[in-house]
Design a protein around this nucleic acid. Structure first.
Lengths: 345, 345
DNA sequence: CTGCGCCGTGGAATCGATTACACGGATGAT
DNA sequence: ATCATCCGTGTAATCGATTCCACGGCGCAG
C-alpha cells in the first residue's frame, strides 16, 4: 500500500508538502498542490489512519459499549449514535456486553487500548471499578440509558416515571388490581428505577405491590420466561405482567403460550421499550416507547462536547405510553390506535 | 497516559526489555521481568495499540460491513462473528450499510484506512467497484450471506433452495395455488437467488408465477408494505405472500392490517429469516430459518485462514423450513410445534 | 539600494511501540 | 588457559504520518 513517501517521490516534493496538501494547509503553491493531487490519484493513496493517530494523538473514533446487540432497543440506539457521529466526522466502534460485566470491561479496555477519543457506555453493572477508574482519569465519557451513581459523567437517558404512571392509570381504569413486574437487574439504574417508578405509581393508585409480584430478571428473554413461570404458579397469579424491557416481555409471552393461556383474557402483558413487532404480536402489546433516535443523537453531541472541550449537558427525555390491546380492550372498542398504522421501522 | 518509556524508567531497564517482557520473549531474566511487571502494575500501563499496529503492520481487527443493523438477522450474525473473532484474538469493527451502496463504500474505506487485517462483507450491491478493487489488491476478504459474482473471494452463506422447495410443497399441500413473492433487490445475490429458487419450486409443483406476483422490494419494511399494497389491489390478489426477508414481512403485515384483513383466513404470509418474534405474531409466522451462529463462525474462520495464510474454504449451509400457522393450519390441528416452545433468543 | 518580512518548501524530530544488531560477561568445550 | 557460544541487555532504526524550524527567494518599503 502506497505511503506518503511514495506520493512525495511521484510528485517530486517532500513529504511535508504532501501532508500540507492533504490537510489543506494554506501555504502550498497551486503547482505543488496539483502535482500532489495527481500523484495521490495515480497511486490510489489513502493516508494511514494508524500513523496519523499516533502522531496527532486522536483517532476521531468513539467507542460505544451497549448491553446487548440482540436487543432491538440497543440496535436502534447504536444506529442513531453512528449516524450522528458520522455527521460530526467521527466513526464508532461498537462493543457488545451481552449484559455481562466482564465482557463489558473487556470491551472498554480494548477500546481504550485503541485510544478512542471518547466512550459512550450503557453500564451493565452499577459498580464496575474499571469504569470508575476511566472516569477518574478524565477519559471523555458519557453514560447513555443507564448510568453509575456517584460517577461524575454526563448522562443521557429517558425518564419513564410519567409513562409508568400513565400505564398504571390505564391498567387501573381497565379494572386490573393485581399487577406484577419483571424487574431488571438491581445493579443497573434502569432496573432499579423502573421498579421504583412502578411501586410509586401503584401507591398513587392505592394498589398493593406484594414482594411476590416483583420478579427478578436480567433483561434477557430467559429470565422473563422464568419469572413468568413463577408468577403463574402463585396461588393468586397477577392479572398483568409488566416487563421492564422488550426481551423479558418476549420470554413472558413464551411462558404464557407454553401454559396455553390467552392474552389478554387470562393474563395481560405490557413492556418497557416499544419495538416494531409489538404491533403484530397476538395481541398487539401495550408498551412504553423511548425516543431512541433523540437519545443517540444527544449522547453523541454530549460526548463530542466533552472531547472538544465544550461544557457538556446531561439530557433526560420523556418516554411515553403506547396503548394497545394486550391488557384488555381500551374503552371505545376495536383497535383504532392511529399511531400504529405504520411500524416506523 | 503512561508509555513504555515510563515503564522502562520506573523499572530501571530499557524499553526493549519492557517490550520483551510484554511479548513474552524468552530471553529476559526473572529479575528484570518481575521489575517490569511491577512497574506496569504501578503505572497501570497499557500498551498503545495504535503504536503497536503501526510498527507490526497488523491491527488484529476485523471489519464487518452488514447490510442493516436494524435487521435481527444481521445482528444475530454480528454477534456470532464478534464472539468467534474474540475467541481467536481479534476484535471486530461493525459498519452498517443500511442497504445503501454509498454508505457501504464509506465504511469499507474507513475500515481500510484503519488498516484492519481483514474484511467481512455482505454486499448491499452487486457491483461495487470499490469492493472489486479491494479484492484485486489482495486485502483479505470474505463474503458472508451475499456475494459478488466474478469476485474471487470465499463465500459463507446459507442455501435456501431446499427450504424454499419445502415451503412451496407445504403451501401446495394446504391447497394454495396463487403464491406471490416480495423479492430483494436484484443487485444482491440473495435477492436474485430466492426469487429463482421460488420460481423453480413453483415450476416443480406445476404452478404459475405471473410477473404481477413478483414484487420488487429492497429488504426494508417500507418496501414490503408498498409491494403488499400492490398485491392487494390486484383483481385477483395472491393467497400467500412470501417475503424474502423478515423486515419486508413486517411491512407486509402492516399493509395487511391496514386493510383490515386477517391472516391466514384472508391472506397467508411466510418469510425468509426466522426471528424470535415470529412465534408470537398473530398468527405465528411460517419461516425459513438460517443457521446464523454457524454462518458467523464459519465466516470468521475463513477470513482468519486467509489472513494467516492458510487456504480458506467457502461454506454453504442449508436453511430449513419452520412451519407455523400463518399460511393456514397444518394438517393435525392445533399448534403442536415443539420447536417453538422456546424462542431461542 | 538595502533590508525586512513573508511565502513556499524541505529537513528532521516526534508519537510509542517492535526488533535487528552489537556488546559484555558467563559458561562450557578442548 | 583459551576461545566459541549463548544469554541478557541496551542502542538505534523503523513504521507513516504531522509539524516545528530554517532557509532561499522575492516583493515592498524606506
Amino acid at each position: 500500500m502506497a505511503s506518503i513517501k511514495d506520493v512525495a517521490a511521484q510528485a517530486g516534493v517532500s513529504v511535508a508538502t504532501v501532508s500540507r496538501v492533504l490537510n489543506s494547509h494554506p501555504s502550498v503553491s497551486p503547482d505543488a498542490r496539483s502535482r500532489v493531487l495527481a500523484a495521490v490519484d495515480a497511486l490510489g493513496y489513502r493516508p494511514n489512519a494508524v500513523a496519523r493517530s499516533l502522531r496527532t494523538d486522536q483517532t476521531r473514533t468513539l467507542g460505544l459499549v451497549i448491553s446487548d446487540v440482540l436487543n432491538p432497543y440497543f440496535t436502534a440506539l447504536a444506529r442513531s449514535v453512528e449516524e450522528e457521529a458520522r455527521a460530526l466526522g467521527y466513526s464508532v466502534i461498537i462493543g457488545n456486553a451481552d449484559e455481562r460485566p466482564e465482557q463489558q470491561d473487556h470491551h472498554v479496555r480494548t477500546l481504550l487500548d485503541r485510544r478512542i477519543d471518547g466512550l459512550l457506555v450503557s453500564p451493565a453493572d452499577g459498580a464496575s471499578p474499571l469504569l470508575h477508574e476511566v472516569a477518574r482519569t478524565g477519559t471523555p465519557m458519557v453514560f447513555v440509558d443507564r448510568w453509575m451513581p456517584g460517577v461524575d459523567v454526563p448522562v443521557v437517558r429517558a425518564d419513564g416515571h410519567r409513562a409508568i404512571q400513565d400505564l398504571v392509570a390505564h391498567l387501573h381504569a381497565l379494572g386490573h388490581r393485581r399487577l406484577a413486574i419483571i424487574a431488571g437487574p438491581a445493579a443497573t439504574t434502569t432496573g432499579d428505577e423502573r421498579v421504583e417508578a412502578f411501586r410509586e405509581a401503584m401507591r398513587t393508585h392505592g394498589l398493593a405491590l406484594p414482594d411476590a409480584y416483583i420478579g427478578q430478571g436480567d433483561f434477557q428473554a430467559d429470565s422473563g420466561r422464568r419469572v413468568t413461570e413463577h408468577f403463574l404458579s402463585l396461588p393468586e397469579p397477577p392479572e398483568i405482567v409488566f416487563a421492564a424491557d422488550n426481551l423479558m416481555a418476549l420470554g413472558a409471552l413464551d411462558a404464557i403460550r407454553a401454559h396455553g393461556l390467552r392474552v389478554p383474557e387470562d393474563i395481560g402483558i405490557a413492556a418497557f421499550d416499544d419495538i416494531p413487532w409489538f404491533v403484530h404480536t397476538g395481541p398487539p402489546i401495550t408498551a412504553i416507547a423511548q425516543p431512541t433516535g433523540d437519545l443517540g443523537r444527544a449522547a453523541v453531541r454530549a460526548l463530542v462536547d466533552v472531547i472538544e472541550g465544550r461544557p457538556p449537558q446531561s439530557v433526560t427525555l420523556p418516554a411515553r405510553l403506547v396503548v394497545r390491546s394486550s391488557c384488555g380492550e381500551p374503552a371505545g372498542g376495536p383497535p383504532s390506535n392511529r399511531s400504529d398504522r405504520r411500524s416506523g421501522l
